[in-house]
């Protein structure tokens, strides 16, 4: 496993998890991840972190807001 391969894999991390890579880039990342525990652990960590950030940052709509929005219906220019 060369160091450059891991660097390349690190560069692909964000796009990979965002599902924004080209199929060729996905294949490149996957073939490296298959053989590299180091990168695989870091991908998994990043994925868990993102899920956790989202879980932590999501706040439900306060009660009553939907009703206030509903009252705005029908307004004209």
């Amino acid at each position: 496993m060369s160091h450059e391969d891991c660097e390349k894999c690190e560069e692909l991390l964000q796009g990979f998890l965002d599902r924004e890579l080209t199929p060729a880039e996905v294949a490149l990342a996957e073939s490296h991840l298959d053989g590299c525990d180091y990168c695989r652990r870091r991908y998994k960590f990043e994925e868990s972190l993102r899920r956790y950030v989202k879980l932590s940052a999501v706040e439900r709509m306060p009660p009553g807001l939907l009703e206030k929005l509903g009252q705005l219906r029908g307004i004209e220019m």
């Binding site: 690190e10 998994k44 960590f45």
Partner: peptide, 19 residues
């Protein structure tokens, strides 16, 4: 880099902690 936080965790808690 993008591995920065994972590397920090691995340094202090060991590589296996990332699993």
């Amino acid at each position: 880099g993008d591995y920065y936080l994972a590397n920090k965790v691995a340094e202090t808690q060991g590589e296996q902690a990332l699993d």
